[in-house]
Design a protein around this nucleic acid. Structure first.
Length: 636
DNA sequence: TATGGCTGTCATGAA
DNA sequence: AATTCATGACAGCCA
């Protein structure tokens, strides 16, 4: 009885906390109205679930008790009280009373009958219940209602209807049994999740759709099932649940519990945690250690991972499998969202910082033409079987090219073989050879300036070992094959004076000198070609824009022309009309009105309007006739 | 398999 | 005269 009661108490407390974290507010006001309404879910907007609950502040200080924190029983006692107080602060000041009502009402019918006395050490459960509940007498009076808030998905879940609420009375054990089942399944999921979440691959998101869970809760109507499950899980309850409930509950824990809700059904035994899991353990939220009501907790669950990362402290509390759940459910997201990226970034930063050297700069400035021979040959992976094909293809490519020394090629072929043993394959991410941005001379100069070595400092063995991780161009390979202690970047970017000094001071052979000059020439020409193409594209783009602009201007001018012609036509028509009107009102010497066809009006420079006689078009008519005749003659 | 784009390279001329 | 730059042309690779 006590075990079951305690178990359900703890389960309901955790369930309540979980629901509050996912936006479900547990409201007991209606519950206390005299009947037991089932779970009703309404969306009331954000709840206190999105604000951080300072559990750590409540630890050992709740109710002003100065209990020694290392006292296990008292710790458990106050932990329970603390949890209840937390639940109270989440939604209702009398929530824990409601919880007690659930437990006593539901478990009393079965637990005592089918389970013997508790074998656990939870003898203080009753005390917890009695002391935590300020009104244990309200058990028979309290109703219950769990309102779901803030989570739209929750609102879609199978909720109790009004009929259900009507059925849930104090005399009706079914609905409380359902609740008991629900809480039990909650714990069941938690327990299973605590064991199965150790498998990261099977971990579900921390906040799955609770609809399925609620449906599962409500699908169980037989208390026997609960009893069987409880009896089967009692040993685990004594360890896991008590251990889980007797510790400071953080958002961390709650998220894991919700993960358990999500349906982790497998009950695999606890396996030795992998290193990744152990690493995650280092990221646990230490509710006791974190004394700040950090605002990142209030940012919502979405911000939790990074907030957790920021607040991570090693947890020394032996929380058993519960924290495994936490690790898996919560920190999978953390790792995905933050740690993986941070890890990658760190690796990259470390890698780049650890080997800031010409080749690293080469990659960074790969557009500066130092990615020589990159496209023609697929990224060489020395040491692999592809090196032969790559080298052969390279030879084929270069056979048709002029300006290449066959001797250099032969030496190179030998050198490549050496590369296969000394230059391991590079990381795929480093194969960034085609950065076709517009290379500027300043960039090259900068790269050359930042080179850690001078002419007097050819590549050392360490540098060579670092370069082994870099993808090399064919000219790089040639230079290596010819034992030239300079990279193509250096050869290309060094001033001509230094280049001449190198040629003179290092005592290179003629083949080496030729190769050095070729590398420098090709590198510079490659840059020049890139710049030329870029300029060409820019010119084409500019011309296209100019064409578009001119076309637009032409269209605009055509529209203006048409508009002007139209206006001119209208004005001419008006002038002709006015002329006819004026002439019609005028009389000649004989008193006859002027014929508009023989007279017209002319406006003089001084503004005077003069009637002008139009010449007879007789001559012009004859002339036109003549032209017509000419045309006819031509046609004939 | 044909095709277009991209790139490296060479040749050439100008600066 | 040597070097660099610009550009057309060619060839290879790739989607």
């Amino acid at each position: 009885m006590q075990i079951g009661k305690k178990y359900l108490t703890e389960g309901l407390i955790q369930l309540t906390i979980l629901l509050s974290f996912i936006g479900v507010r547990v409201d007991v006001d209606s519950y206390l109205s005299g009947y037991y309404p089932p779970l009703t879910e309404i969306n009331l907007g954000p709840s206190s679930a999105y604000t951080q609950t300072p559990f750590h502040i409540l630890r050992d200080t709740l109710d002003g008790y100065g209990v020694h924190p290392k006292c296990p029983e008292l710790d458990y006692f106050f932990a329970s009280r603390r949890l209840l107080e937390e639940v109270r602060t989440l939604g209702s000041p009398r929530f824990h009373t409601q919880l007690n009502a659930w437990l006593v009402h539901q478990v009393s019918a079965t637990d005592e009958a089918e389970h013997g006395p508790s074998t656990s050490s939870g003898t203080d459960t009753d005390s917890v219940l009695e002391s935590s509940g300020d009104s244990g007498e309200h058990l028979s009076e309290s109703g219950q209602e769990v309102r779901r808030r803030a989570n739209p998905e929750l609102g879609q879940g199978p909720c109790h209807t009004e009929e259900d609420e009507a059925q849930v009375t104090e005399e009706d054990p079914v609905a409380p049994a359902q609740l008991a089942h629900s809480s039990f399944l909650e714990q069941e999921s938690l327990l299973e999740g605590s064991t199965t979440l150790s498998n990261p691959g099977r971990c579900h998101p921390p906040f799955p759709t609770p609809d399925i869970d609620w449906s599962n809760f409500l699908s169980l109507t037989e208390l026997d099932d609960l009893d069987c499950l409880v009896s089967g899980r009692l040993p685990d309850l004594n360890t896991d649940i008590i251990g889980a409930i007797s510790q400071n509950v953080s958002l961390h824990d709650a998220m894991v519990t919700s993960s358990g809700i999500c349906g982790e059904s497998s009950s695999e035994g606890t396996e030795p945690r992998s290193s990744a899991q152990q690493q995650r353990n280092l990221l646990r939220l230490d509710s006791t250690g974190s004394s700040d009501t950090s605002p990142e907790m209030a940012l919502g669950l979405a911000a939790l991972p990074f907030a957790s990362v920021c607040n991570m402290t090693p947890s020394a509390t032996p929380q058993g499998t519960l924290n495994d759940c936490l690790d898996e459910a919560v920190f999978d997201q953390i790792n995905q969202l933050g740690l993986d990226g941070l890890e990658t970034i760190n690796n990259q930063l470390l890698g780049s910082l650890g080997c800031i050297e010409p080749h690293a700069l080469e990659d960074l400035d790969s557009d500066s033409g130092l990615s020589l021979e990159s496209s023609s040959g697929s990224p060489l992976s020395p040491g692999s079987s592809e090196i032969s094909s790559s080298s052969s293809s390279y030879c084929e490519d270069e056979c048709g090219a002029t300006g290449y020394s066959s001797e250099v090629e032969s030496v190179l072929s030998k050198g490549i073989t050496d590369y296969s043993t000394t230059w391991p394959p590079t990381h795929p991410n480093e194969n960034i050879w085609h950065d076709h941005s517009y290379a500027s001379a300043a960039l090259f100069n900068k790269a050359a300036i930042t080179l850690p070595h001078k002419i007097e400092e050819p590549f050392s063995d360490d540098v060579c070992s670092d370069l082994e991780e870099q993808e090399l161009s064919r000219d790089e390979l040639r230079a290596r094959a010819m034992c030239i202690p300079f990279s193509a970047l250096q050869i290309v970017n060094m001033p001509v004076e230094e280049f001449m000094e190198v040629l003179d001071s290092y005592g290179f052979s003629s083949e080496q000198v030729t190769l050095l000059r070729d590398i420098r020439r090709r590198g510079k020409n490659k840059l020049a070609a890139q710049n030329c193409r870029k300029r060409k594209l820019d010119a084409i783009t500019g011309l296209q824009e100019e064409v578009e602009m001119l076309q637009a201007q032409r269209d605009r001018l055509l529209r203006d022309k048409q508009l002007t012609a139209k206006t001119m036509g209208a004005v001419g028509h008006q002038i002709r009309q006015l002329t006819r009107d004026v002439l019609a009102r005028l009389r000649d010497r004989s008193g006859q009105p002027l014929n508009p066809e023989r007279y017209t009006l002319q406006c003089g420079a001084n503004g005077r309007v003069v009637v002008q006689h139009i010449r007879q078009p007789a001559v012009s008519t004859s002339a036109s006739n003549k032209t017509d005749k000419r045309k006819k003659d031509k046609k004939q």
